[in-house]
Design a protein around this nucleic acid. Structure first.
Lengths: 210, 210
DNA sequence: ATAAAATATGGGGTTTTCCCCATATTTTAT
DNA sequence: ATAAAATATGGGGAAAACCCCATATTTTAT
């Protein structure tokens, strides 16, 4: 009996193409593909449509990989989720794994690696390439960095740092005094070990706050 | 006789998966796949390895789609290049088309659309979905925007704008006077209709200069 | 319950950025 | 060939950002 797989990827061409590859594997077959997490949830309402393995793209418009893996882990923990992404960005790996992903594969892997990964995932219950394991282990050590908490108000401020508004104007938008805005800057600079607004703006963009 | 296709995409899994789809098409067959433009050029040195159609991903590490399509158009204008990308970002479309791409397809297309696109490309010599044509035509009107040229020196400066270096320090790195650095800023701000360094930094990141 | 931490605000001063003025050289285009 | 544009540099001043000081309130944690 072949193990069943569902692919979730908003790039239909890619999803279908992957399906073609997987359907040639002896031990696996694709049940169906979805464009996003929402669609997957709808399918999961039907108990006949729950697969053994979920191949999950991370960046999706409607309900992304992080949200989806969280939902699947909560509602169908028996489904093994393998994350599939372009780059192996540290934060994505940590976020996916801590939200329940059992495997992580890059899209620049070879088809044989995909088969190998699926097999390992099926037998061992998990599959992490060396580079991913490294990230996961090293993330356990530096709990300090993970402790950086950014308040809602600071997040709001970060949105404005990437604009050409000055602090006075940001204060107006945030209904507070310019001093307060400057204190957000100072606090964030301290936490993030930055010195300038440019540094904050770059941080905001690269970490999805803007 | 089937039309030959070469796929260039750094995500091997995707490239191979696409190959699987295309090889099922009656009129087309994949000759080989490459991970980047450099590899393609090496292959093109052998005249037996020049295909009818090139399926070209845009974002690649070594030699990206823009550079690659420029090279191919210059050296092998008979090869029809179809750009393949995640999103249909306006700037990417314009850049690819003005550099010689004859077609543009999103990765969230259906496999049938791919076959249709390849057929049209082969028969008509071009293929642009409606959304892409719209972008191309509207870009012809606002030639002003397209005329924005950023000099090498300004590009170098843009790299530094996203750092926490001040203009004095940037001047040291660029072996010029701080005034000169400030003139780069002023010129860029004028061209890009920006006012602050933060604006420049955001521009630099979003447009791949940093 | 009480201390610690986070939030919000202010005064005042230094540095950096922004923006006006201008000039000499080099490159590009007609 | 000559004008226009781009490059590189400078002076000086206004505005913004940075950074020290401090305080009152609220929230969080032990």
């Amino acid at each position: 009996m072949k193990k069943t797989i569902v692919i979730v990827d908003d790039h239909i061409l890619i999803a279908k193409a992957l399906q073609g590859i997987i359907d040639n594997f002896a031990a696996f077959e694709v049940m169906y593909v979805c464009e996003n997490g929402k669609e997957l949830i709808k399918n999961f309402e039907n108990s006949n449509k729950i697969p053994d393995i979920l191949l999950l793209d991370i960046s999706m418009p409607i309900m992304d990989g992080f949200e989806t893996v969280t939902w699947v882990t909560a509602h169908h923990p028996e489904v093994k989720v393998m994350a599939l992404s372009m780059q192996g960005e540290e934060k994505s790996v940590i976020k996916m794994v801590s939200n329940g992903a059992k495997g992580y594969l890059l899209k620049n892997a070879h088809p044989v690696e995909l088969e190998n990964a699926l097999t390992k995932l099926n037998i061992n219950g998990f599959f992490y390439p060396d580079w991913a394991s490294k990230i996961i282990f090293s993330s356990l050590n530096k709990t300090k960095d993970a402790e950086i908490k950014i308040s809602d108000r600071e997040k709001e401020f970060l949105k404005y740092t990437v604009t050409e508004l000055n602090y006075k104007e940001i204060a107006d938008k945030m209904f507070c005094s310019p001093r307060t805005v400057e204190s957000y800057r100072d606090q964030l600079c301290e936490k993030l070990e930055l010195k300038t607004r440019v540094g904050l703006a770059v941080f905001a963009i690269k970490n999805g706050f803007a």
